[in-house]
């Protein structure tokens, strides 16, 4: 179970889905107005590989996420949350992901991470000359390693993440 925040969180989720392959499940609240656009993410994954669930509230979102993680039929479960995850919920999702051998990703608002998360990332797009997908990914929490920051860009033709050295000041 991982967490991502910042304005580039959606891009991070799609890059992860493309890396993991297989079917991705996207869990979102019914009142969430932001809609992912299938014509916009064809560069990352095929829209037929994505299934999304509309849930009534946060509790339902978490229940659906847990069930999907445990089933092991999908490789990635993305859930957008508005409230910080409690320790119990975080631990349950963690165990479910371990049972199902799948990855969970929570899109959280800035500064609302939970202690149960394996890693937490902050992603933000960066203005770059002639390059349209440049992003700065910061690893701000890591249970099993060090922190770091990278400038990356997505190559649509090879469907690969390319590491870019940050531009000199």
């Amino acid at each position: 179970m991982h967490e991502v925040c910042g304005p580039g969180a959606y891009t991070y989720a799609f890059v992860l889905a493309a890396r993991l392959g297989g079917v991705c499940m996207w869990v979102r609240g019914r009142r969430d107005l932001t809609l992912i656009n299938p014509n916009g993410f064809t560069d990352f994954i095929a829209p037929s590989e994505l299934i999304f669930c509309n849930t009534k509230d946060e509790i339902q979102s978490l229940a659906v996420t847990e069930e999907a993680l445990r089933a092991g039929a999908v490789s990635l479960v993305v859930v957008s949350l508005n409230k910080p995850l409690g320790l119990t919920e975080g631990r349950r999702l963690q165990l479910a992901a371990r049972d199902g051998k799948s990855t969970g990703l929570a899109i959280i608002p800035e500064g609302m991470g939970s202690n149960a998360a394996e890693t937490r990332w902050r992603c933000a797009p960066v203005f770059g000359h002639g390059d349209s997908t440049l992003q700065k990914w910061e690893l701000i929490k890591n249970k099993s390693g060090t922190l770091g920051a990278w400038h990356v860009r997505w190559d649509a033709t090879s469907r690969r993440l390319i590491m870019v050295s940050p531009a000199g000041k």
Partner: peptide, 10 residues
């Protein structure tokens, strides 16, 4: 749990 019509695809 959430109703079959709430699980959707594009």
């Amino acid at each position: 749990r959430i109703g079959l019509e709430n699980i959707q695809r594009f």
